[in-house]
Design a binder for these strands. Structure first.
Lengths: 203, 203
DNA sequence: TCTGGAAACTAACGTACCTTCGTTTCCCAG
DNA sequence: CTGGGAAACGAAGGTACGTTAGTTTCCAGA
């Protein structure tokens, strides 16, 4: 027995990524081993190396792809929101929450397996993360400049908002009590309440 | 050479906990190995077993101790805050943020190494976590009942608030731009703005 | 139809890991 | 002063891991 009838490189590569996603999400990158991964895909451990160059490279590729997709999708959402600042801010938040529910495994890994990356890979992913955070920070800055927002400290508020919104990928489960749309709406309000300009009588 | 002059059980045990904290925080539990841990403490790997029963038990003990301390400290802070709901809510938030800055390694581990626990240990720590979350949820419920707070969905808001406030332990660094007290104040306002009853003119 | 590369297999290498064992030395209670 | 437990040591067992090597089979393009 050697190459299996009907085997297909692209399909196997996809299956590896998909299985790795589940296993890393569940156990963490360091705790995942290539034997389990291969078994999940239905091939021998050594066959993985027809599709990956190393365990480390697999993680890096997955993270990089995820971050690139997230950045592109975010920019598209911002573009579609039109010119008004509050519309763009809402779009950012809503997109972030929805994306983090629908791809919570990718997101979770990208957030919590950074330390598993080799230094050069680490630097590259962190740079992409910074780009993402910069999108929100720029929106807050703009809102403060126009007076639509009231933000005591822009960097801290950026991190706090992102932490809150990203948190959803740690506890959200499909088939939970609430629909995705409801969770998006709830989080959007919570986030905006933290930065919206308060009417004088409410302070 | 065998038992070292001046060696002391309690001191070594403490040193192990302390070194493990740093190593697990930096690399993750699965990626930390007992050889590195022993080297950090200054003893041989096998000598660790005079103080721990297994690597898994070390993690569990550390987590359990942390959660017990957190629960006790939180209750003390709530007690000291007096009877008024908003005082207790502020006290909870402020205490949470301060605690998460001062013991960010313990907190980070307790939050993100849950999956490294064996099932029975896992259940026990998750139960303690739920107790902690219940403290905040009860405060929000009380505030909604008295009308002091306006919360669209109590469980979701609880999780979102905790995610935001806990997030600080992922990016806070001593000697950063802001003092602890400033960060506490900023986060307290951000969190309260999300749940405080809005004046009519501000809605 | 034929051939080269893609994609799988089996086997194994070398290392690193957690843990156990038996021994040695030190400290302290009686 | 002395005996027993506490706390360290060195050495090694047994396993599991990432990865490489060499081989075999299938598929697609000429």
């Amino acid at each position: 027995m050697a190459r299996i009838s009907g085997s297909n490189g692209a399909r196997t590569a996809t299956a590896i990524r998909s299985a790795a996603l589940t296993l890393i999400y569940r156990q963490g990158f360091a705790a995942m081993n290539l034997r389990d991964l291969a078994a999940e895909v239905g091939i021998q451990p050594s066959s993985l190396y027809n599709h990956i160059t190393s365990k480390q490279a697999l993680l890096f590729d997955m993270m990089q792809e995820h971050m690139a997709t997230l950045l592109a999708a975010t920019d598209a959402a911002l573009e579609a929101a039109g010119p008004a600042l509050m519309d763009r801010l809402r779009a950012f938040i809503a997109h972030h929450v929805l994306y983090h529910m629908e791809r919570r495994q990718e997101v979770y890994i990208a957030n919590f397996e950074l330390r598993a990356l080799d230094p050069p890979n680490y630097r590259q992913i962190v740079e992409m993360r910074r780009n993402y955070e910069a999108r929100l920070m720029a929106l807050l800055e703009e809102g403060v400049a126009t007076g639509e927002l009231e933000v005591a400290d822009i960097p801290v508020t950026t991190f706090a908002m992102l932490a809150m919104l990203t948190g959803i990928c740690t506890w959200y489960r499909p088939n939970g009590r609430l629909e995705k749309a409801e969770l998006v709406a709830l989080h959007t309000e919570l986030a905006l309440n933290g930065v919206r300009r308060r009417a004088v009588s409410a302070r």
